[in-house]
């Protein structure tokens, strides 16, 4: 019985939150890795793109809520999500036309594009703060739990509760759908194949008559969708605050690099590697160990390896280890 309680506690505090967080990171890292693979630069504005998409979604959600439209047990934000994606696509396509295209035509060095993306980051950050303000925003509604702690206790009679929040369930389901659709698109459709061809070998792709502007346009549209979905899911699961999204840049990049920059499968794997390491290393293991170990060996302290404030340090150390021992990432990426 005690062992079962240990497993439940582990699932409740580590596995479920890490799966949700990992899915959010994976979606973010997919966006970064696609831009890297096709446009060949590290996009520093990605965190703020996520914030922008999430912001549009939040505004529409508020409007829908005020109009009395809801999705019943599901959060209204899901209904607003397509509009958020459209808004984000508009922003990214305009940005590309106004800013990035110039440097693409010039064949500027990647690092120049990174600096340009820094400018874009400032602007997006400014817009988001200007429109919605720098504070925390709540926009989640509907049923809070799929299984609440109380129901679970009644159902099983175990001492340890297991709570699954709606946002966590939605995150996982949405992430699976998005990833399946994305991979179907990249592997089966003509446009997807031309995107992969362009990413593998630009010159060869151009020779075979692939229109680069079209590939770039589709990439931005996909990236906008991924960023908005990741941003909204993160906002539903935790909360929406512009600065947190900026800070997500580090774990997202770590995920993309750990998996291998430019490799979509790697981005997903990297997202989960980072999320699970962050959560396991910053979790206080006392409860699980007390259940799992015999009474004489029960720990006294919290058995927390690092305080939660150091979660960035975890993604950073993993990043360093990968850079030192396997610079191309777990799944062979493009970059060395």
């Amino acid at each position: 019985m005690d062992l079962l309680n240990a497993v439940i506690a582990l699932a409740n505090f580590v596995i479920i939150p890490a799966i949700a967080y990992g899915s959010q990171l994976a979606l973010g890292a997919l966006g970064v890795t696609l831009i890297y693979g096709i446009l060949r630069f590290s996009n520093f504005a990605h965190g703020d793109t996520m914030a922008f998409g999430a912001m549009i979604t939040i505004l529409i959600t508020w409007w829908l809520q005020a109009a009395g439209v809801t999705l019943g047990p599901l959060p209204t934000a899901l209904l607003a999500l397509p509009f958020g994606i459209l808004g984000c696509i508009a922003l990214l396509v305009i940005t590309d036309r106004a800013v990035y295209r110039f440097y693409r035509v010039q064949k500027a060095k990647p690092v120049i594009l990174v600096i340009v993306s820094m400018g874009v980051m400032f602007i997006m950050n400014g817009i988001v703060r200007f429109v919605i303000g720098p504070d925390d925003q709540r926009f989640a509604d509907g049923e809070r739990f799929i299984i609440s702690a109380g129901t679970f206790r009644e159902m099983t009679g175990l001492a340890e509760p297991l709570a699954i929040r709606t946002s966590q369930g939605i995150t996982l389901v949405t992430a699976i759908i998005v990833v399946v659709v994305l991979f179907w698109f990249l592997n089966r459709t003509r446009t997807g194949k031309s995107m992969r061809a362009y990413s593998d070998n630009e010159d060869l792709a151009l020779l075979s008559g692939i229109n680069p502007e079209r590939v770039v346009l589709y990439t931005w549209m996909i990236v906008a969708a991924l960023a908005t979905i990741a941003g909204v899911l993160y906002g539903l699961d935790k909360s929406f605050k512009p600065f947190t999204y900026f800070q997500l840049l580090l774990p997202i990049f770590a995920a993309a690099i750990v998996g291998g920059l430019g490799n979509p499968v790697g981005a997903i794997a990297g997202g989960f590697v980072i999320a699970f390491s962050e959560v396991t290393i910053t979790y206080a293991w006392k409860k699980v160990l007390t259940y799992a170990l015999p009474e004489s060996m029960a720990p006294e302290g919290l058995v927390q390896l690092l305080s939660t404030d150091y979660k960035f340090a975890v993604s950073f150390v993993i990043l360093l280890i990968v850079l030192l021992f396997k610079p191309t990432g777990l799944f062979k990426g493009k970059a060395v």
């Binding site: 990174v114 960035f312 850079l323």
Partner: peptide
Amino acid sequence: TALGLRSDYLAIATLGIAEIVIAVLK
């Protein structure tokens, strides 16, 4: 650790160390 690799990697590594320094100070 990060020099000698792609320029982007140095960027990410320095971004990370900055956040860690602040986390330690806090």
